[in-house]
């Protein structure tokens, strides 16, 4: 599903050269649930940005779903993001002026679905996250956990094969964080590949595999003993 080999990312200014990733290599199989942990500044978010085609890389090769993405144009990368990748952000990144329906609708419009198709997908996605009765609410009228559920619905509505989550529980209290994790496990159980950056070792252990990033490199890549929460295993 995701195959990175010797990816390097260098940020340059006039006086400083920062190596965010060095010879970073990783394979993620279809249906996998991988958590990415590591200290602040280790390169987790850079890895996630490159994996999600949000940023380009300095050297190395990256194949997404069997396709080399090295030389894709900006619009081709946009299309690929829209069709194959779902994003979940730490700060939810909902558009505050749009209600839940319109928020989930955003990527679907870029996909070019017709109105009826979009409506069906939005309703199904919001149903999946348990917010179908709040479609006309604004994000500000929801709790943090509910907002993150909307963000997950937005990520799911386009039926992506690959879900990237950047500390999705980082801004949530424990109860809401567990509820979001349960949801992610359910989604993964239905076949969606998930790569999630987290600081929470407990959640990291719930994934099928954990990689530990240090100084821009994968320093540990371990299969996790399955200790799934009850909701996920149900």
């Amino acid at each position: 599903m995701l195959k990175m080999e010797n990816i390097s990312k260098v940020f340059r200014t006039d006086v400083v050269e920062t190596h965010a990733l060095r010879q970073f290599s990783l394979n993620v199989d279809e249906g996998d649930f991988v958590t990415v942990t590591g200290p602040s500044g280790s390169g987790k978010t850079t890895f996630l940005n490159i994996a999600g085609l949000l940023e380009t890389y300095s050297s190395g090769t990256y194949e997404l779903d069997g396709k080399d993405v090295s030389n894709l144009s900006d619009s081709a990368r946009s299309r690929l993001r829209n069709e194959k990748i779902g994003f979940i952000f730490q700060s939810f990144n909902l558009i505050p002026d749009l209600n839940l329906f319109d928020n989930v609708d955003v990527p679907l419009r870029y996909r070019g679905f017709n109105s009826a198709e979009r409506k069906k997908r939005i309703e199904e996605a919001l149903e999946t996250v348990g917010l179908s009765n709040r479609m006309k609410h604004l994000p500000a009228q929801l709790s943090g956990g509910q907002q993150q559920r909307v963000a997950i619905a937005r990520a799911l509505a386009g039926s992506p094969r690959f879900l990237l989550a950047d500390e999705p529980t980082g801004n949530l209290d424990s109860k809401m964080a567990h509820s979001v994790m349960d949801l992610l496990h359910n989604i993964n159980a239905q076949g969606t590949t998930i790569v999630m950056v987290t600081h929470d070792p407990g959640f990291a252990k719930q994934a099928k595999r954990n990689i530990f990033v240090r100084d821009g490199q994968v320093s540990e890549n371990t299969l996790v003993e399955q200790d799934l929460p009850s909701a996920a295993s149900a």
Partner: peptide, 16 residues
């Protein structure tokens, strides 16, 4: 800024 970045991340092209 964040909203535009998010739209781009969700698949909006520059033309969009």
């Amino acid at each position: 800024l964040r909203q535009i970045g998010t739209r781009r991340a969700l698949g909006a092209s520059k033309a969009n």
